[in-house]
Structure formats: structure tokens, C-alpha cells
Amino acid sequence: MSTTTGVRERVESMSRGDSSSETMASLEVRDLITEFRGRRGHVRAVNGVSFTVPRGGVLAVIGESGSGKSAMLRSIIGINPPSTLIEGNILLQGKDLLKMSQRDRRRARGRDISMVFQDPLTALDPVYTVERQLVETIKKHHEGISNADARSRAIGLLELVQIPSPGARLKAYPSELSGGMRQRVVIAMAIAGRPQVILADEPTTALDVTVQARIVRLFRQIQREVDAGLVVVTHDLGVAAELADEVAVMYAGRFVEHGSATQVLTTPSHPYTEGLIEANVRAGQDRRPRAIPGAPPSLKRLPAGCAFAPRCAYAIADCWSAPAPIRDTATHHWSRCLLASNAATSS
């Protein structure tokens, strides 16, 4: 625990180095727990996650399906089903979202923190025009704005996300736009309230490969322009490499490795991260991608020791007895692995 705090303090001190107060952590998540409670037992999808995203910073969270990445984002923005238990602290500019009234929390949604979803084909209301959906969002976050002003702002947003002839596109229904266009509209909607933090859940997964690259570039550009913190969940290491300053690797509801994007992606210190990189397909490579053997553990019955031990090639006896502690492997780089050493070069 002390180690996480250490990391956080280091990140914060890094930010504090700048004079302006705007650069303080815009999103700070502490010991987040998300538990889906059902009649047939509880499922802990997020199990004590902590991280900080400074204004303008980008954190990519990578991991397999079912590792709790999406549940984490949904908990942060607050759209999990009511029966979900959420614990910990989610500080947005120092204010804890989990301690706010429902009403204040709803007001923060879209204005202070917003979300881009995975599938742009289904993320927009099919029976409302782009204009109505955008104007509705803008009016929500700018009290007393006139219809004409909201409309011209909507056009401005569409220009920002590089949609050609935005005036004409406003009249379109989502079904009349291509996947890439729709994702641009979703992004426009997410920045309509000028949020300090944008969450993105696999924003490129549902798109054509050619469109993916363009959307990633747009994301980078937009995020810099509105100077928001960005948390992007992805299983595409390429997206993480291109967008992120920091990368966190999530497994069975926990971060198992966290560090700068270069460190994590080039010198991984957790066997799971190593496995993810091995499994990645890259153009022009001569080796075949190697899948990680086995499947992620059931979140209902986590092993007593390291959750990855059953799939890990390096596992030793100690791995099975107790969860691995957090080990610093370099400055701003830690791993939840017994075998991780400070000389991260060993892997």
C-alpha cells in the first residue's frame, strides 16, 4: 500500500512542479472497489485500483476482456446498475464523486467528466438527429444558452472533430453516418461540456482498421485541445502506445503493473504484461503471436495467491500462497510480481 502512495506522491509532486494550479491531478482514484451484487453471489470486478491522471495526461489501461476495465470506467462515471457496490474515493479536482448527492453527481456527468463508448453504431439514439443529441448535451451543460447559440456551438464541435460540412451533418440521423463519423459525433458529445476528464472505453475496437488510426490521432489532438485528462481502456497495445503517457495493466480486477508507456510496453516487469505483448500482432514482425495459455480466473473464486499464477510460466511456490506485493522496478514503474526486480532489465 505504501508503495502505491509513493507512486501517487511522486506523480503529484511531478505535477506540482508546474506553477499553475490547473495542472493538479484532475482525476484521482483511490482504492476503488466495484462489486456487482446478485442473488447468486457477488462479483468483485474492480478490486482496489488506485491511479492519478493529471490535466492533459493520458492513462491507458490494458488487459483482456473481463479484467474489470469497463466496470472501472462505469464506476467512475457512475452508470453501473443501482445494485452495484462501489467503494473508495474518486476525486475530481479534489471533490469526491462518491460523496456527492445523486443530483450533483449527475450534473458533473458530461460537464466535468465524460465518456466515449466502444461501439459508435449503438452509442447514439437512433431516432434523434445528430443536432438534437448535440444541442441537448450542450444545453444541459450551459444554462440559459439560446437554441441558436447551442446550434452554432454544435457546428463548432463537429468542426473540432473534423466532420466535413457540419451544418448538413447536423440534420442527419446516426444511421445515415458511417462508423467513423458516428464515433466523431460521440467524441464531439463527450467534449461538449468541456470536461476535465474524458473516459474512453475501447474507442476504436468497433471501427475499421483504417478508421481506427484516424480516430486515435483525433483523440490525441482533441484531448490536447481541450486539455483534459484521458483514461482510455483498450486491449490494443498500439492504441496504448500511440496515445498514452502512462500505461496500467489490469488483471482480475487489479492493476498488476503501472508505469510510463515506454517502460511498460518495452520493458515489462510483470509476466502478464509480457504475455500481452507476445500475443500482440504487429505488421512486419517475423515471429508468430503467442497466446497466453489458459483463461482469466473467475472473479467469483479468485485464487489465494497471485491471480495470474495458474497461467504464469515463471510461477514459484510462493506465488500460490499470498497475493504478490507491489514492487518498484524503476522510477514511476511498479509491478505486482514477486519476481520483479529493480533491475527491470532481467525480463
Partner: peptide, 22 residues
């Protein structure tokens, strides 16, 4: 999915349900 988008952009439950009913 779009109901999540509506909630995530801060619409009230009543506004969300107007969309749903439409």
C-alpha cells in the same frame, strides 16, 4: 448502449426515459 451514453452525458432520469419511450 445509447441509454448509457445518455446517462453518461448527464441527462436526468426523466430525460433518459423520454428517449427510451420515443
Amino acid at each position: 448502449d445509447f441509454v448509457e451514453t445518455l446517462r453518461a452525458k448527464g441527462l436526468s432520469e426523466l430525460e433518459v426515459r423520454t428517449h427510451v419511450l420515443r
